[in-house]
Deep mutational scan, measured.
Amino acid sequence: NRRVIAMPSVRKWAREKGVDIRLVQGTGKNGRVLKEDIDAFLAG
């Protein structure tokens, strides 16, 4: 159960899209999950 680094707005975006943010690979600094990462995860 790893800790995910993400801005609150990104966490909210993931929740709205029904995405478990822990499954998303972050591409930002220090592995931070970005809004673009959520979109890419949804795109496959």
Rank of each mutant, 00 (worst) to 15 (best):
D37S: 01
G31M: 05
G44M: 15
R22N: 13
I21A: 01
V33M: 03
N1S: 13
G44E: 15
N30E: 09
R15Y: 13
E36C: 10
I5R: 09
L34R: 10
Q25E: 12
K29M: 11
L23A: 11
K35E: 04
G28T: 02
S9P: 06
L42Y: 08
N30C: 13
K12D: 08
G26I: 02
L34Y: 07
N30T: 05
G18F: 06
R15Q: 12
G44W: 14
G31V: 02
G44A: 15
R3E: 12
N1W: 06
N30D: 13
K29R: 13
A6Q: 03
D39K: 08
D20L: 04
G26K: 01
K17N: 15
I38H: 00
D20T: 03
V24A: 03
V24I: 13
P8K: 14
V33W: 02
L34F: 07
I38D: 00
L34T: 12
N30W: 13
S9Y: 11
D37K: 02
Q25T: 14
K12L: 10
D37T: 01
G44F: 15
I21L: 09
N30V: 05
N1I: 11
V24H: 00
T27H: 06
D39M: 10
G44Q: 15
R22W: 10
I5K: 09
E16H: 11
A43C: 12
T27V: 02
G28I: 02
A14I: 02
I21T: 02
I5Y: 09
R15L: 13
E36I: 13
G31R: 06
D20Q: 05
L34S: 08
G31Y: 05
L42N: 06
W13F: 15
G26A: 07
I38F: 02
V19E: 00
L42H: 08
K12Q: 11
K29W: 11
A40K: 14
R11I: 11
G18L: 06
G44V: 15
V24K: 00
R15T: 11
K17W: 10
A40G: 08
N1D: 15
P8C: 11
E16N: 08
A14Q: 01
I38K: 00
F41H: 09
T27Q: 05
I21C: 00
I38P: 00
V19C: 06
V33R: 01
R3Q: 14
Q25F: 13
R32M: 13
A6C: 06
D37R: 01
Q25R: 15
V33I: 15
A43H: 12
V19I: 10
A14N: 01
R2G: 14
V24L: 06
N1R: 08
R2L: 13
R2A: 10
F41G: 03
A40F: 11
I5H: 10
D20N: 10
R3S: 11
A6L: 04
A43V: 14
N1M: 08
N1G: 14
I38L: 05
V19S: 00
V33E: 00
G31L: 04
V24P: 02
R15C: 12
L34A: 04
R3A: 11
G31Q: 06
V10P: 01
D39I: 09
E36R: 15
R3M: 10
R3Y: 10
F41M: 06
N1A: 11
S9G: 10
N1V: 13
V10K: 01
R15N: 11
I21H: 01
V10F: 02
R32E: 15
D20E: 06
T27I: 02
L42T: 07
M7Y: 15
D20I: 04
G18H: 09
R22P: 01
I21Y: 04
I21K: 00
R3H: 14
G44D: 14
R32W: 09
V4R: 05
A6D: 03
L34D: 04
F41I: 07
Q25K: 15
K35F: 08
L23Q: 13
K17G: 03
I21P: 03
F41R: 04
A14W: 03
R32L: 09
L23C: 06
K35N: 04
D39Y: 07
A43W: 10
K35T: 05
A40D: 12
P8I: 09
D20K: 04
L23I: 10
L34W: 04
P8Y: 09
E16C: 11
G28N: 01
I38W: 02
I5L: 13
F41N: 03
T27N: 05
I21S: 01
A6T: 05
Q25V: 15
S9F: 09
Q25L: 13
G31A: 05
M7Q: 15
K12R: 13
I5M: 08
N1K: 12
N1E: 13
E36T: 14
Q25P: 14
Q25D: 11
P8G: 09
E36A: 15
F41Y: 15
W13S: 05
R3K: 15
R11A: 05
V24R: 00
M7D: 15
N1F: 07
S9A: 14
S9D: 13
V24F: 02
K35L: 09
P8T: 07
A14D: 01
R11D: 04
V19R: 00
N1C: 15
I5Q: 09
R11W: 14
V33N: 01
E16V: 12
I38A: 00
G18Y: 06
V4L: 08
G44I: 14
E16M: 13
A43S: 12
W13H: 15
N30L: 11
E36W: 10
V19K: 01
R32Y: 07
I38T: 00
R11T: 05
A43M: 14
V4G: 05
K12Y: 07
V10D: 03
I5W: 08
A40R: 14
E36K: 15
R2Q: 13
I21D: 00
R3W: 09
D37C: 01
L42I: 14
M7H: 15
W13E: 07
N1P: 14
V19Y: 01
R32I: 07
D39L: 08
K17A: 11
V10Y: 01
P8M: 10
M7R: 15
T27G: 04
V10T: 05
R22E: 09
K12V: 07
D37H: 03
K29F: 12
A40T: 12
A43P: 06
R22Y: 11
A43E: 13
M7S: 15
G28F: 02
I38C: 02
K29I: 12
R15W: 13
D20Y: 04
K35S: 05
Q25G: 07
G28Y: 01
K12E: 09
L34P: 01
R3V: 15
D20W: 04
D37E: 00
W13R: 07
A43D: 11
L42C: 07
R32A: 14
L23N: 10
D37P: 00
R32Q: 13
E36V: 12
A40Y: 10
P8S: 10
Q25A: 13
K35I: 09
K35W: 06
K12C: 06
V10R: 01
A14R: 00
A6R: 03
G18T: 04
R22F: 10
R22C: 04
V19Q: 01
G18K: 09
K12N: 08
F41D: 03
D37V: 02
D37Y: 02
L34M: 09
M7I: 10
R3N: 12
W13G: 04
R2H: 14
R32N: 06
K17R: 12
K29A: 13
Q25Y: 14
L23G: 07
R32K: 08
D20V: 04
I21M: 05
K12F: 07
G31S: 06
P8Q: 10
I38S: 00
A14C: 05
S9V: 08
K17L: 14
E36Q: 14
A43L: 14
G18Q: 07
L42E: 06
I38G: 00
A14S: 04
W13T: 06
V4H: 05
A40P: 02
G18S: 06
W13M: 11
R22A: 09
E36D: 11
R2Y: 08
D39R: 08
D20F: 03
K29Y: 12
Q25S: 12
V33T: 05
T27K: 05
R32G: 06
A6Y: 04
V33D: 00
G44Y: 15
V33L: 04
K17V: 12
P8H: 10
V24T: 02
A14Y: 03
R22D: 06
E16D: 13
I21F: 04
A14G: 03
R22I: 06
G28M: 01
V19M: 03
N1Y: 08
G18P: 00
F41V: 07
G28L: 02
G44H: 14
K17F: 07
E16I: 12
I5V: 13
K17E: 04
G31I: 01
R22M: 10
A40H: 12
K12P: 00
V10I: 06
D39T: 09
V19H: 01
V19P: 00
R15G: 06
I21Q: 00
D37Q: 01
Q25M: 14
A6F: 04
G26W: 02
R32S: 10
V4D: 05
K35Q: 07
A6N: 03
W13V: 08
L23S: 09
L42S: 07
A43R: 14
N30Q: 10
W13P: 03
G28W: 01
K12W: 09
V10G: 01
V4P: 10
K35D: 03
V19T: 03
E16W: 09
G31D: 05
